[in-house]
Amino acid sequence: MGPAVALQQALGDRAQVVATVYCGDNYANERSGAVDEILELVAGERPDVLVAGPAFAAGRYGLACGALCARAQAELGITVVSGMHPDNPGAELYRTRVYLASTRDSAAGMAEALKAMARLALKLRAGEQLGSPQEEGYIPTGRRVHLVAEQSAAERAVEMLVRKASGQPFRTEWAVPTYSRVDPAPPLKNVAQARIALISSGGVVPRGNPDRLESAYASKWLKYSIAGLDDLEPDRWESIHGGFDTTNVNNDPDRMAPLDALRVLERDGVLGELHDQFYTTVGNTSAIPTMRKFAREIAQELKKSRVDGVILTGS
C-alpha cells in the first residue's frame, strides 16, 4: 500500500513489508493518544523494523514520524528509520534519537528517499556500523565519532583553501550551523503604557541560591518577586552563572539584571509598569531546545499576566 510498494522493491528479498499504518497528519498531532494507538497497531504486527515516512518537508508528518519512531525504539526495542528534509521541524527534534534519511523537500524525491531508508533499515537491523552522514545519507545525529585522518588538520585546511581560492569544489568538515528565523513581534505602540517583564539568562538568584539553579546545563528557570524592590542588593542577590567571572555582577547584581534603572524609568513614566516577577535562568552550555522550552513556558505566564514586552539580558 502507498510508498510501501516502492519500499518493498528497495528492500528486495532481505525484508518483507508486513503491514502499513496510515494516519492523517492532524490526527497524529492534535489528538492526544494518537501515537499510542499507532504504536499499538505496530506492536500487534511484531515487526523487526519500523519505517516511518518519508515526510519530506511536511512538518506535522515529520513530527508524527519522529514521535512514533522514538517511542517504538524505546518501548518495543525495534529498529526504526524515518526520512525527511533537514529543515523539517521533526528533524531538529528527533535527529539525535532516530536515524533520519535526508530527503528532498517534496515527494518528487520519493524513490531515492525510500532507497536510502531501506538501506539504513537493513544496515541498522543487521547491526552494521554506519559510516558518516554524508556517506550514508542520513541527517547528522550530533554524535561525535573519533577517527584517524590521513592528513593533519593543517594540511586539510590548506588544501581546502587552495581548492576554494582556485574555484574548485570543496567540502567543509564542520558546517557553520544555520539558525531558524522568527518573524519579529510587532512593536509596542507606547512603552509608557506598557507592562514590561525583566528576564535574565545571567544566573541572578537570591544569595545562597536557595532553589539550586545549575551554573551550567540549567534544567530549569525560576521566578522571584521583585514587588517593592528598587535595587538588587549584593547581600541579597548574586549570579551563579558558571560561564564567566561573576565578581562584577556579585558586587552589584543590577549590572546583570538592571532593576534599579527600570525602577527609575518606571517612576519617571518612561515605562508604564514593571512586571512584579523577575524570571531567571543560566544560559551556559545550554541546548537550544531546552532554552526554547524555558522561553515558551515563560511566555505563557507572561501572556497570562498581560505583559506587553520583555527586556532580556545575558552575556
Partner: peptide, 14 residues
C-alpha cells in the same frame, strides 16, 4: 529565548 518569546508575540529587547 528571545526568538521563542518573540514568536509568542512578545517583543523582546535583548
Amino acid at each position: 529565548m528571545a526568538k521563542e518569546l518573540e514568536s509568542a508575540g512578545l517583543p523582546v529587547a535583548y
